[in-house]
């Protein structure tokens, strides 16, 4: 018996819309990330039930796709491109400098949850690297200052 507005109801609703869609599981799980920031075991159980799949299958899917994160990001979420075009214009150095400025490595979140740093492999801004995103906003010609201020 579901309470309207409960988290379970929301996940169920998110998943239910996607049931008959192509790639529905992935779309639903992406929506869960969009709504709740990350995916928890209980979300997986609900999505599994809605799609009539096992929790194991959902787990397998979640763990395959980088976007389907199971941990929350920091309040400020920085992704720095690690791919070749950005490397050619200082991407590695930018990453190192940003990491040391923030005191966290790639794939880490600051202990206070204020900021997290993540690798991304190409943002399609390869003429204007090094590229990054901050909270989803694209940052071409990125600098440590632009990312951390």
């Amino acid at each position: 018996m579901l309470e309207p507005g409960s988290e379970e109801t929301r996940v169920r609703d998110i998943a239910t819309v996607r049931v008959d869609q192509i790639g529905g599981t992935i779309a639903a799980l992406s929506d869960v990330v969009r709504t709740f920031g990350h995916i928890e075991r209980r979300h997986m159980e609900i999505v599994a039930d809605v799609f009539n799949l096992t929790v194991a299958e959902i787990r397998g899917i979640v763990s395959f796709y980088s976007d389907l994160r199971t941990e929350p990001t920091g309040k400020r979420h920085i992704r720095i491109c690690q791919a070749e075009a950005c490397q050619s214009v200082g991407g590695r150095e930018l990453t190192a400098a940003t990491a040391s400025r923030l005191g966290i490595g790639l794939g880490e979140t600051a202990a206070d949850g204020s900021v997290s740093l993540e690798a991304v492999y190409c943002l399609g801004l390869c003429t204007s690297g090094p590229s990054a995103t901050v909270d989803g906003r694209a940052v071409p010609f990125a600098t440590v200052e632009a990312l951390t201020e």
């Binding site: 799949l53 096992t54 194991a56 299958e57 787990r59 397998g60 763990s63 395959f64």
Partner: peptide, 10 residues
């Protein structure tokens, strides 16, 4: 036909 296992991660 139980689908209880998966490959996790990649």
């Amino acid at each position: 036909g139980t689908f209880a296992l998966t490959i996790d991660g990649r």
